[in-house]
Amino acid sequence: MTNKKPKNVFRQGAISSEFIGDSIAKHQTKTSIGAHNIFLGQVRADEIDGKTVSAIEYTAYEDMANAKFHEIREAAFAKFNLTCMHIYHSLGTVKAGEICLFVFVSSPRRKVVFEALEFIVEAIKSEVPVFGKEVFEDNTHQWKVNN
């Protein structure tokens, strides 16, 4: 278990491939790691009633969301033998095709990271108060709901 204070998981706008690449590069000094696993959530251009989603505008109950991310992080460290874990989620507008969620787990061994990543991503989807307004190309919208 770690005893760190909740971090701010949120980033304004899309998460860039440069940011993700840099994050991977930073782990080259951590040579006890033998396996990384990464989840990237990407905004899908869903077609609904003949209209196509062009972007999602994310909002969150930020204080509670960061506390929830922290709980999920602590639970994952308690459950799995992880060397490190990073979670970033977008706020504001993320266009279709751009990345809105980046989860990165690392461990000495591969099996752990497969299980841990699924556990973390499913918990994020169901427990963290983040809201998404799906904006269509004609500027109408609907509210996204996780299944």
Binding site: M64, K125, V130, W143
Partner: peptide
């Protein structure tokens, strides 16, 4: 910042109404 059932006593401070989540 903690989910509560509606028969909970109000303790003051902050109440948030949260629609279905859509993170990720």
């Amino acid at each position: 910042q903690v989910l509560v059932p509606v028969n909970t006593k109000l303790s003051g401070n902050e109440i948030a109404l949260l629609p279905p989540y859509a993170g990720g």
